[in-house]
Nucleic acid binder design. Structure first.
Length: 425
RNA sequence: GGAGAGGUGGCCGAGUGGUCGAAGGCGCACGCCUGGAAAGUGUGUAUACCUCAAAAGGGUAUCGCGGGUUCGAAUCCCGCCUUCUCCGCCA
């Protein structure tokens, strides 16, 4: 969430910038400003009363020590009214604070100045593209057909065990999955990311910290008995490592990577676009997360983008990088690049990565700060993350693009790890 | 899951109703000392919020978290979380 100070000190700037996300913020900002003024008045009054109460208590202590019991008792009587007042003010304050945060949480993050306006994916800007599309014959099969043909991914079996959206990988596909994960992790470690293996269940505070709660609980699987959520992405546990922390200046940027399975309910999304591996309830993903100084977070975003690009290049996949327009960006992001690979049999671009700078939107809600080099000032750090990469759609594209009459060719960079260079029979 | 013992500042550790945001030590920062360093020595060293044009200063809250008792709670009571020891269960 935006900090209340940002909102109240630059109301017109915030409103103006949020228009790029097609968000009309004027009314909300007014309400926030009013509530915040109220909050400060109440806090002020409360502080004064508590100071008074502390003063009297101290006096009573002194009187007792001096043996002036009657005076002390008289002083006690004084306090009952004050106590009542303090209690009222406290209730008023916490009421106002929760109203305020209910409102603040509704404001999306401010888009960066370079984010183009627009509503739909059609308004996204092509940043660059690379790789070449394979020339497939007319009989080219989509990956779900290939999966059946070579008996490597079993969607029906997943239905039996769990339900739709939980495929079972078998044989060479299972191994390919494992090798992709280790390939992505090794690459990330070589690029300076520290490998982490976090829990895949998180508590409420963590889910709030990265912004899944309060609004998006419907997208997460929830374990009610223990009040825990299955992570929709490793971003959640990784970023929350730093919740309530103050990072020394010279430790920035912090760079982490992690493989985790990811769980998404994605309620109600069935149909042609979600066939096969295109959209799943459980999938594997390697994620990169950075905690950066505000002055260099956009450099980090570009660096992360180049890093992810190096992966799709090594996998020899045709890809393009899109700069998302304001309307297509997530609620939390300031700037996002999407990576798409071309899946040649479906003849579709599939999103395989999304890299975003959240600026201080997440760090503000999770109190993730850094200490400035000079002056010891403390500020919110910037958080960034990106998929590097999400497996299923990569696998879909690999299967479709590399199909030959003899089988599915495995790119060189993976063949060594896998111990095979073709999926046939 | 059962029984018992704990959770205090960056760390160690004292504190069982008032003068305690918290002794002492370590660490860290700056200074003195030194040719330089070590040792020694002096000072400083939490976070959030309110107040203030800003800084300085002042105020409030925070001793795992949340409630309660009390004029007053790190200290007493209740619930939760968590760590350790023992028992049980278990990949």
């Amino acid at each position: 969430m935006l900090s209340v100070r940002t909102i109240t000190e630059n109301p017109q700037m915030v409103a103006e910038r949020l228009k790029v996300k097609n968000f009309e913020a004027g009314k909300l900002i007014d309400e926030i400003t009013t509530l915040d003024t109220q909050r400060r008045h109440i806090k002020s009054a409360l502080d004064t009363s508590q100071a008074e109460s502390n003063r009297i208590s101290k006096q009573i202590g002194l009187l007792f020590r001096e043996g002036k019991k009657e005076e002390a008792d008289r002083a006690k009587e004084q306090t009952s009214e004050l106590k009542e007042k303090i209690k009222e003010l406290q209730q008023e304050l916490s009421g106002t604070e929760s109203l305020l945060s209910d409102l603040v949480v509704q404001l999306p993050n401010i888009p960066h100045g370079s984010v183009p306006p627009g509503n739909t994916p059609g308004d996204n800007k092509l940043v660059r593209e690379g790789g070449s599309r394979p020339a497939l014959g007319r009989d080219a099969l989509p990956h779900w057909e290939l999966a059946r043909k070579y008996d490597i991914i079993d969607f029906e079996l997943g239905n039996k065990i769990t339900g739709a959206g939980f495929p079972v990988y078998k044989g060479k596909a299972a191994k390919l999955q494992r090798c992709l994960i280790s390939f992505f992790l090794d690459e990330a470690v070589n690029a300076g990311y520290t490998e982490i293996m976090p829990p895949v269940l998180v508590n409420e505070d963590s889910a709030f910290g990265t912004g899944q709660l309060p609004d998006k609980e419907g997208q997460m699987y929830y374990v009610g008995l223990d009040n825990l959520y299955l992570i929709p992405t490793a971003e959640v546990p990784l970023t929350n490592i730093f919740r309530n922390e103050i990072i020394p200046f010279d430790e920035l940027p912090r760079k982490l990577t992690s493989y985790t399975p990811c769980f998404r309910r994605e309620a109600g999304s069935y149909g042609k676009d979600v066939r096969g591996l295109n959209r799943l309830h459980q999938f594997d993903k390697v994620e990169i997360v950075e905690i950066a100084h505000p002055d260099s977070s956009y450099e980090r975003l570009e660096a992360m983008t180049s890093y992810i690009e190096s992966l799709v290049v090594k996998l020899e996949l045709p890809y393009r990088i899109m700069l998302l327009c304001g309307g297509d960006m997530s609620f939390h992001a300031s700037k996002t690049y999407d990576f798409e690979v071309f899946s040649a049999a479906q003849e579709k671009w599939l999103e395989v990565s999304s890299v975003s700078n959240f600026e201080s939107f997440q760090s503000n809600r999770m109190m993730l700060r850094y200490r400035e080099k000079e002056g010891k000032k403390i500020n919110n750090a910037h958080t960034l993350n990106g998929s590097a990469l999400a497996l299923p759609r990569i696998v879909a594209a690999l299967l479709e693009n590399n199909q030959t009459p003899d089988g599915i060719r495995i790119p060189d960079v993976l063949a060594g790890r896998c111990g095979f260079d073709i999926i046939d029979s």
